[in-house]
Design a protein around this nucleic acid. Structure first.
Lengths: 189, 189
DNA sequence: GTCTATATCCAGATAGAC
DNA sequence: GTCTATCTGGATATAGAC
């Protein structure tokens, strides 16, 4: 359908502008301009600006789900976990604006719908499984790993965009995390 | 002077509104209303809205500097480091909007002046010293510790405001970090 | 110093013609 | 489906009277 193509075209324009001006700064006028339309015509495709944001969120979440599902599954579960972390960080750095939309709350007044959040949750659900495969269980461990990864990414995006000052620490960070739990397990024995 | 008092009164009103509506959403009308003025009168005290933001930034940075300078200095340098981390996290959680202004870039078009940034830098300069006191040197270690703390705080603020799901992990996180470097040092020997 | 009035600009959203 | 015209509401900032 032509309609679906135009729909996709509008989303594409929105992403391009978001990457240029920031996700919160995109204007319907400009998006419309990019696809050869006037602003009111967008309302044929999206009932509101927040609906457009929600479609962007859902699209990003689907991309993340695909990316993480494609991770290399190694016989060594530690390698599988490493692959997940590496893919996740690469995904975030490949498009910082997408990262911001998915993991921060950059737009006052916008919250993703439950449907879109569900896509995100399903994308992230496998982390627990990969962690348990290396013998690490529990909510605390999951939260600590998330904090470690989040910290690396957010400092990277905020303070050294385009560089690798923090992302290059990812292997060391993961080793530190794994050693911490290996040590705890050994002490329990 | 009356003038200094009014100046402070305006800043106070700005903080109150920022905490209520978000730092990027405060309107000069509302700030003025809170201090019994009309919007244009604020221009007697601040030449622009960004100048007001900059004054808020500088104020927050001064508060951070005071807080960290007051940390307990223990005979055990590990305890001093722990105290610094604990104070820093408590400072951030005590006012998430202030945290956002100081450590994220929540306002499009606003960047703090060099003078204000210098206050921040001086507030944070002691971290390296405290780290070196426990025998941990180098930029990588500093960056990794920063990532760990940043991750805990940003997840806490974003996903469990008012709770302690992540901040309660701070001791474990610091132990993990210290053990990592202790282990590396032992291996080098 | 503070006010009213206004300039200037921007946004999202809707009505209704074509 | 797309357009023009408009509604509604918001903002920062300035001019000039008092």
């Amino acid at each position: 359908m032509r309609r679906a193509a135009t729909h996709a075209h509008i989303l594409e324009a929105a992403w391009a502008l978001a990457r240029r001006d920031g996700i919160a700064a995109i204007a319907l006028r400009d998006i419309a301009g990019r696809v050869g339309m006037r602003a009111p015509s967008l309302y044929t495709y999206f009932p509101s600006k927040n609906a457009l944001y929600d479609a962007m969120f859902a699209e990003g979440a689907r991309q993340l789900a695909e990316t993480l599902a494609s991770r290399r599954k190694d016989a060594d579960p530690g390698e599988t976990l490493r692959a997940r972390v590496q893919l996740f960080i690469a995904f975030c750095m490949a498009d910082p604006v997408r990262y911001q939309l998915l993991f921060e709350r950059p737009i006052p007044g916008f919250e993703p719908t439950q449907d879109s959040l569900d896509i995100m949750l399903s994308a992230l659900a496998g982390t627990r499984t990969d962690l348990e495969a290396v013998g690490i269980h529990g909510e605390r461990a999951l939260d600590l790993l998330r904090a470690l990864i989040t910290g690396l990414i957010s400092l990277q995006v905020a303070n050294d965009p385009g560089g690798d000052r923090w992302t290059r620490l990812q292997e060391e960070a993961l080793e530190m995390f794994l050693a911490h739990y290996a040590h705890r397990a050994a002490n329990v024995k």
